[in-house]
Design a protein around this nucleic acid. Structure first.
Lengths: 236, 236
DNA sequence: CGTGCTTTTGAATAGTATCAAGGCCGGTGG
DNA sequence: CCACCGGCCTTGATACTATTCAAAAGCACG
């Protein structure tokens, strides 16, 4: 695939395009790697050395951390305009893994290029800082939720996260098919519990399901399950 | 209390002192607020409007998020050199609360001063970005742990977090006295469970306790409890 | 030397994970 | 096109873990 220029990038949310000066965009064009990943491919492998940062041009990516018995905790989703990894020190490794959930295009910028970028584009650094700071706040809230919520609440939240990140099609069906295991990996629970809770939600008329497809009929109802908590938004 | 200059600040870890130019340090001196908080006072109240960022000069601060039934989740500790809050947009509120655990001195910098700082000190912004990005990684790992660990493991981790943040005195006793409730608030559990697990650890010779005082006898033993997990460090 | 808080312990209860088995579906190869 | 196979979904039974509730004991403070 031919490498496209950041200048004419289809993704108007990319921090490079938005906050780097024209002369720098050209330099990045020369030095970036643009990589195409098919669905379900690893962009970042846990514990591999940090060489730079990945900017997501298109597609959908899940970011996870592997724990006991290879069980994965999905910590967040990264969409176009978001980024993966960070400027790492020597010999540092990625503490998380990242896998595409759709065919995706990702731009990779090496550490040393990043350093130059930082020097020349203060506005870009500011926005990068805000990105991390926003994500940090979301993580802090998610952390409280995982620590305090019961399974029903955590799984309701997982559905809302999917809803927020992937949206619904015309039939109110989630624009993504996740296995029960995946949903459990968001909520911090088990596939069986996901099943039990989904069945419960269905009986309450909050959702309906057909195989793996899940229709969200009443998002407010799901939100109400969480309303006891002092909720701050975990969304963008 | 007389406001001290950043130039001669006793805290050599402060990002302002380390990464702002001399002329800017003077400007900050004029425009910052230096506030003394006694132990157990609120620096940030949850849901109050974001007016700026707090830089911790000295003391110890816990950062928490309040959930169901006023139950608190301690999401992290902030020590000298760390910062609280972030550059917020209009009408944004703090999603977390922060409370001193010791007598503490904190420097407050308003949003509009921060903006000027950002413009004039690219290196400062870079370091701020790295701070948030480091904290984000720690939160992602903590999140997995809270989602996957059982109570025994979570409470062992809580002790290690206290150990890392506050250290031991000569008698191997934690340099901080936390109530069972507080420990439960770190681990995402209940005071009763904390009790049960602490008693267990004591019988295994990992710790000993005298009232609220906890002696860590075998940190490696506590670490071993967590070793089944692909552990990345949640510490600095 | 009370008073009120936290700690400590145990018992009862509820919640959750684990295990096992059958059914459904999609894909593959005959 | 059909039969087979493997994986995931689904459900229920079981065992375990954790929370809740209650009550006594210890401690700090006035």
């Amino acid at each position: 695939m031919k490498k496209s220029s950041c200048e004419f990038c289809e993704n108007s949310q990319c921090l490079i395009q938005k906050y780097c000066s024209p002369e720098w965009i050209q330099k990045i064009d020369e030095r970036k790697y643009q990589i195409f990943f098919k669905q379900n491919k690893d962009i970042i492998t846990e514990n591999s050395p940090i060489l730079g940062v990945f900017f997501i041009l298109s597609g959908k990516v899940k970011v996870f951390s592997t724990g006991l018995n290879q069980r994965q905790q999905i910590v967040r989703f990264a969409n176009p305009g978001h980024l993966l990894g960070h400027r790492g020190a020597e010999n540092e490794v990625y503490p998380i893994g990242a896998k595409t959930m759709d065919d995706s295009v990702v731009c990779f910028v090496e550490n040393k290029v990043l350093d130059d970028l930082f020097e020349g584009n203060p506005r870009f650094v500011q926005e990068l800082m805000k990105f991390y700071s926003r994500e940090l706040r979301k993580m802090e809230i998610r952390m409280k939720n995982l620590g305090q919520m019961n399974t029903r609440e955590k799984i309701s939240e997982a559905l809302l996260i999917l809803l927020e990140n992937f949206g619904l099609n015309e039939q109110n069906c989630l624009n993504v098919t996740f296995s029960r295991q995946d949903i459990a990996n968001i909520a911090g629970s088990t596939p069986e519990q996901v099943m039990t809770q989904l069945t419960g939600f269905e009986q309450e008329g909050l959702i309906s399901k057909a195989g793996r497809k899940i229709n969200i009929l009443n998002p407010e109802g799901l939100q109400n399950i969480l309303s006891k908590y002092n909720q701050h938004s975990i969304f963008a």
